[in-house]
Design a protein around this nucleic acid. Structure first.
Length: 126
DNA sequence: GCAATGACGCTCT
DNA sequence: CAGAGCGCCATTG
C-alpha cells in the first residue's frame, strides 16, 4: 500500500522523539515530518495507530494545546489525559495543557539552559 | 471517480 | 480567552 507508508513512518518517528513530560502539536509534527501545513494528515496517521503502538501519540495535542481526539470522553481521550498527567503534564479541566510550559521544540542544542519557556515558569505545581 | 468526513491550523470577531 | 469561519489534503463510502 502504498507509498504513503513513508509519510506515516515519518510522523511516527517525530512523535517518538518527543521526550516525556513534554507535548507537541500536530502542526509541529507535520512540519518536522516534512508535511508543512498538512497537520490534518498527522492526525489521520495517529488515528490509524492501534493499541500497543510504540508511538506516544498521547503527547501530541493540537495548536490550542487541547486534547483533540474524537472526543475527550472516549477511552483514548481518557487515556491520553491520564498518561500526560502521569508524566507531570498538567492537564486543564477543559483537556488543555500549557504549550508555553510543555511545548516541546526540536531544540537539538538546548545547552544554553532554557531558551524556551520565557516566563511563567515555576508558579504553581501540583 | 465524485462527494463527504476528519485525532488540524490560522485569522477574525 | 473563547467561539465561529475558511483552508489544507488524505482516507473512506
Amino acid at each position: 500500500m502504498s507509498r504513503a507508508a513513508t509519510a506515516y513512518d515519518r510522523i511516527y518517528a517525530v512523535v517518538r522523539r518527543v521526550p516525556p513530560g513534554k507535548v507537541t502539536t500536530y502542526g509541529a509534527v507535520a512540519r518536522l515530518a516534512g508535511l508543512p501545513g498538512r497537520a490534518r494528515q498527522v492526525g489521520y496517521a495517529l488515528a490509524a495507530l492501534r493499541d500497543g503502538t510504540s508511538v506516544p501519540w498521547h503527547r501530541v495535542v493540537n495548536a490550542q494545546g487541547k486534547l483533540s481526539l474524537v472526543r475527550a470522553g472516549s477511552p483514548s481521550g481518557i487515556t491520553q489525559r491520564l498518561r500526560l498527567t502521569r508524566e507531570d503534564v498538567r492537564v486543564d479541566a477543559g483537556d488543555r495543557v500549557s504549550l508555553a510550559r510543555y511545548g516541546w521544540k526540536l531544540e537539538s542544542r538546548s545547552s544554553r539552559g532554557d531558551a524556551r519557556v520565557p516566563t511563567a515558569n515555576r508558579a504553581s505545581r501540583a
